[in-house]
Deep mutational scan, measured.
Amino acid sequence: MAAGGDHGSPDSYRSPLASRYASPEMCFVFSDRYKFRTWRQLWLWLAEAEQTLGLPITDEQIQEMKSNLENIDFKMAAEEEKRLRHDVMAHVHTFGHCCPKAAGIIHLGATSCYVGDNTDLIILRNALDLLLPKLARVISRLADFAKERASLPTLGFTHFQPAQLTTVGKRCCLWIQDLCMDLQNLKRVRDDLRFRGVKGTTGTQASFLQLFEGDDHKVEQLDKMVTEKAGFKRAFIITGQTYTRKVDIEVLSVLASLGASVHKICTDIRLLANLKEMEEPFEKQQIGSSAMPYKRNPMRSERCCSLARHLMTLVMDPLQTASVQWFERTLDDSANRRICLAEAFLTADTILNTLQNISEGLVVYPKVIERRIRQELPFMATENIIMAMVKAGGSRQDCHEKIRVLSQQAASVVKQEGGDNDLIERIQVDAYFSPIHSQLDHLLDPSSFTGRASQQVQRFLEEEVYPLLKPYESVMKVKAELCL
């Protein structure tokens, strides 16, 4: 049975990233139509530049190519590739079939990587351009969430054990800070992308030097003109047959890092959902379990974690691919890159769409948070109580021993009897502590235990987050809708 299948058929496997999760716009960027249309555009740009620099290419040939950029006979191309065992030459023939007058000058002087690699770089750039505003929107939604809850005390956790208090907004800023680093890295790697350009079979530009009869300047002009037509500021000066596969490492490393950030955020949300302090959106008709109707599973956060793990592992592909590119190139890269580049971007696209949807509907339960604080705060307040007693004339050592005994009794009630923490009640009825009984409410005010959390939130948002989001103001209103 021949390899390949009808990918629109229910009898043929289709990647869930495309069929179930990723956005239509990201799927289109990695589609065959987008790819092969870009090949034709690159052939047109090459012909236009070659004509401008004096090669015998007519206006009629150029116009014929322009008129057929979208006229792609995919069936013919597939048949040609089956016959020739070469995808680029299959599309040269297919393009030439609908451009008979231009057929002889299509791909003039070029090698397969002229269309293959340059198209990949265009796709990487455009895919990054799709991700950047999506990530900015996630940051914006979380920034709104953090600002609104900047002063809401909550129990902090280290080692997932109760620690000092923080605020809900401050905790959210930990998430935002990681995503801001990801946004900066995505922008950097996007701006650092260079075009492969017009380089020939081993990167020496020998074929173009021959076409222009040894004119170095025209060869350099050709490279520059096509690079500018493709919208790049610069091209690699040095290439082998391909652009260095280190570029793929750079791009997928940034995406993998984004995956790590999203995994951490969504894990926190899942843990908070278990504590009943916070939940992701839950639709009115949504079913959490087929057997347990009360369940409210954090399905979206779980999906993000599941896909983020996949995204983090994909960076190993370009690392290994770059390491086995012998001399000017081997074909070890080809099949692998067809999979890992598309999957990385479709996965990143999915987790950003999902995280935006989550961040637009996060639900906080202040009463649950308050109750958990009441359970733990008495123990945390013991040092403040000791200091207040010393100020009232008591002995630190005597007070410490009193607190120690009462704390152990209260802990026994919590752990052995399943009761509430009654340390404060014990202190309130103990005559030894009568000098500070009137101060206990103040000493137990949760806001006095959150330090500068709310001020940190305000400063972080104003100095770091809002300036970073400013270039994306025009796209901030787009909502994230999930079908599944």
Rank of each mutant, 00 (worst) to 15 (best):
S9I: 15
D11T: 13
Y13L: 13
L17D: 02
Y21G: 11
A22N: 13
S23Y: 07
F28W: 07
D32H: 15
R33G: 08
K35T: 14
T38F: 10
W39F: 13
R40T: 02
L42Y: 01
W43T: 00
W45E: 10
A49Q: 00
E50F: 05
L53T: 10
P56R: 10
D59K: 13
D59L: 11
E60K: 11
F74I: 15
E79C: 14
E79V: 11
E79N: 10
E81R: 00
K82N: 12
R83P: 09
D87V: 00
M89P: 02
V92F: 07
H93F: 08
H93C: 15
T94C: 15
H97I: 14
K101W: 07
G104T: 12
I105D: 06
N118T: 00
D120T: 07
R137L: 15
S140L: 15
F145I: 00
A146P: 03
S151K: 14
P153R: 01
V168M: 08
G169N: 04
K170N: 01
C173Y: 00
Q177V: 14
D178R: 03
L183G: 03
D192S: 11
T202R: 02
T202H: 02
K218Y: 11
K224T: 10
T242W: 00
E250I: 06
V254G: 11
L255E: 05
L258H: 15
S261W: 03
R270A: 01
L271V: 09
K284H: 14
K284M: 14
Q285R: 12
I287R: 00
A291D: 01
M292E: 04
P298V: 03
S301Q: 08
E302N: 07
S306H: 05
L307C: 14
L311D: 01
M312H: 04
T313N: 10
L319D: 04
A322G: 09
F327V: 10
E328F: 06
A335F: 02
N336E: 02
A342F: 08
D349M: 08
L352M: 15
Q356D: 06
G361P: 10
G361F: 14
V364K: 06
K367W: 06
R372H: 12
L377C: 03
P378R: 02
N384G: 06
I386A: 03
M389R: 07
K391S: 12
Q397T: 06
S407I: 03
A411I: 09
A411K: 08
A411R: 05
N421E: 03
D422N: 14
S434K: 11
L440P: 01
H442Q: 10
L443H: 00
D445V: 10
Q456T: 05
Q456M: 10
E462T: 14
V465T: 07
K477M: 11
E481H: 14
